[in-house]
């Protein structure tokens, strides 16, 4: 859904070399040996990392069959599925962690999806691109055009990202669905964690991506 992830899909097999910044952060949040569902798992890069470094019992859900086949071929468990439709199949509390990595903005009903994640998992990890990032704001302000960056390379008419939000928007959504924000982190455009504590409005400017750990 982002330039980073699509580049990784194309370079299938060389993933271990470059671990995505948000993957690293997500990995740090997940406990050893946990039962994990990765929604929007693409070719399994994050699941593979979690399996190797955290020894998780991992499953993936991915909308593209090519992604699913790539996961299975590398020995990971994955099913073809649509976050908007198929999360309803899982029972309550089926997983210790449910991860939605760079996918929320591509769902048709982000609020419903978030509720389902909170129902299925004891812990929910969501990472998403922050539309409030200063470079995005500048493009809109100065050019009057929807932002197109290296990180979000799509034009408005061909983007799979139909529900962009900012960090502050997401915090508001969490309140609306009664989710507790256990931890929140912002990543700058180098993919590194913003290393200082700051009010939401600052993160909302300097964070290119955000990673949230939520509980019901």
């Amino acid at each position: 859904m982002t330039a980073v992830s699509s580049a990784l899909i194309e370079e299938n097999g060389t993933l271990q070399k470059a671990i995505r910044g948000d993957h690293r952060l997500v990995c740090d949040l997940v406990t050893q040996g946990a039962r994990v569902l990765d929604v929007g798992c693409e070719d399994g890069a994050l699941l593979d990392l979690l399996t190797r470094e955290r020894g998780v019992d991992g499953r993936g859900m991915e909308i593209s069959q090519a992604g699913v086949n790539a996961c299975v071929a590398r020995g990971l468990s994955a099913v073809q599925g649509d976050a908007d439709r198929d999360l309803a199949d899982y029972p309550d509390d089926a997983f210790d962690f449910v991860i939605l990595s760079q996918t929320l903005q591509a769902t048709r009903e982000p609020k419903t999806v978030l509720k389902q994640l909170l129902r299925i998992g004891s812990n929910v990890v969501v990472s998403f691109p922050n539309f409030g990032f200063w470079k995005n704001r500048l493009q809109l302000l100065f050019y009057g055009r929807m932002p197109v960056t290296d990180y979000l390379p799509y034009s408005w008419y061909d983007t799979p990202n139909i529900h962009f939000c900012t960090i502050r928007d997401f915090v508001a959504l969490c309140e609306e669905v009664d989710a507790e924000v256990v931890k929140a982190m912002a990543l700058n455009d180098k993919g590194r964690k913003v290393g200082f504590n700051a009010p939401w409005w600052v993160w909302n400017l300097v964070g290119q991506q955000a990673v949230f750990l939520l509980k019901r």
Binding site: N69, A78, P91
Partner: peptide, 18 residues
């Protein structure tokens, strides 16, 4: 079958081959 396995929180992979 996959839907039922998911409902049972079983470990399942599903591939459709073209």
């Amino acid at each position: 079958v996959v839907k039922a396995l998911n409902a049972a929180a079983a470990n399942v992979s599903f591939v459709e081959v073209e």
